[in-house]
Amino acid sequence: MNPGTAFLCAAAGLLITTAVKLWALRRNRRDPLLRAVTATLFVGALLFVTAAPPNLASINEIIGIPNIAAPIVYSIMTAFDGISIVLLIHWRGNDDARATLRQTRLCLAAYAIVMVAICVLFALGDAPVERLRDLDTYYAGTPWIREMILLYLVAHTVAAVTMTVFCLRWSRQVPGALKAGLLLISTGAICMLGYDLLKYTAIVARWLGHDWDTLSTDVAFSLAGVSAFLVSAGFLLPPIGQGAGSRWRALRRFRRLQPLWLEIRPEIPSTSPPPMPWWRPVERRLMQRERDIFDAVLRLAPWFDQATGAKVYALALAERSPSRLARSEADASVLARAVIQKGCVRPVVTPGNRWTLSSTEDSADLVAMSAAMLRSPRVEVTRQAMAPAEHGA
């Protein structure tokens, strides 16, 4: 794949992701972190689009000024650097909102000044010969153009060093997807540094009368695409990873609560909404399942038999079960008995002899009670003991 195609493919991926973030931004317009992420993705996509060699020629031709694409690309790269630092500032967070705002404004102002200076220096200089790949070295000795090139490289280097140091320090303090994202960003920033060093080397070589242009036109060009992609991927990985982790945990809980939900299913009123289909968000399906369980527990409470719960609890403890697991088995047995009793239209238990379910007070205990519904032999014994009463009814 040639560099131009690679740049356009990367731009397409970033634009699609930007569209997704824009949709989320509609519902959270005041979220500064989301705004910074969206801006970073969009500017990164714009950088890939404009930096592709075929597009450089098109920009020059459309505007009608030789090499006008250079200050445009340099300005977009500078904007990407500044917004990336701002995103890190908001991402890390600060108890002092004013300090965060002050740092953001300072960073944006500094890089905005650099962008204006790049355009002014290009206007002052003279670059009549179109150079799509080697402008940095071809005009390394041209007044004003030389200063423009060095200015964008220095701004780029400052951003690379800042991002590398910031991300490596922060990555030591956090785990998981956030740590991986920070390491990706720092790797991309190190590639940015490599890009700058190669550019500096090729430019200095030109000043000394040597031709090391390939370092700038080939190697550095490839590193630019890699660095921008790694930095963008690093910013995307934590929210994607955390979202995927959250959905996976919700799905596991949803499945683990199925035995309990199947047990209380006869108590779900026919007027209640039917279970959501599999393609609906798992968080909403889990919420519906838990709501069904809690509602059923409330309706079944008058049939909770204290004698059944105490018996199963004592048997579980006698077999050296942990007290929390024993309590879950007792609660599961009481609930299973109550479903049968209510279904057989048996009298309710007097208030003084009612068992109080404690497994519904803790999310882990609720899952443990669901597991007991499926695996506990004592719950099954309770069901079998109630079977004659069911047939008798």
Rank of each mutant, 00 (worst) to 15 (best):
N94G: 05
A110M: 08
A97D: 11
G125N: 03
L121P: 09
R92G: 02
L101G: 14
D95I: 02
S84R: 01
Y111M: 05
F122M: 07
R105A: 11
C107P: 09
R102E: 14
V116D: 01
P128K: 10
A112I: 07
C119Q: 15
I85N: 11
R131Y: 12
V129D: 15
D95H: 07
A109I: 12
R131L: 09
L88D: 04
D126L: 14
A123L: 13
C107S: 11
A99E: 12
Q103Y: 11
V114R: 06
A112H: 03
D126M: 08
V120Q: 07
G93A: 02
A97N: 05
W91K: 02
A109W: 09
D95S: 08
A123P: 04
D96Y: 10
Y111V: 01
I89C: 02
L121Y: 09
T104K: 09
T100M: 06
L88P: 08
V120S: 05
D126R: 15
R102Q: 15
V114G: 01
L88A: 04
V116R: 10
I113T: 10
A97Y: 00
W91P: 04
L124P: 00
I118D: 07
A123K: 15
R102P: 12
L106R: 15
R98F: 00
V114L: 09
A110N: 04
V86A: 14
I113A: 07
T104Y: 06
R92I: 12
V129H: 13
R102Y: 09
V129Y: 10
P128Q: 07
E130V: 13
I85T: 05
V114P: 01
A97H: 03
L106D: 09
L87A: 15
L108Y: 01
V86K: 12
Y111D: 02
L87W: 13
H90L: 03
G93E: 03
V86S: 11
L88V: 02
L87P: 08
G93K: 01
L124E: 00
T100S: 11
E130Y: 03
A110C: 06
I113S: 05
I89A: 07
I113M: 01
R98L: 07
C119V: 15
C119N: 15
F122V: 11
E130K: 03
R105F: 10
L108R: 01
P128A: 06
A123C: 05
R105H: 08
V116F: 06
A127D: 04
A109C: 08
I113P: 00
W91L: 10
F122C: 06
D126S: 14
G125F: 01
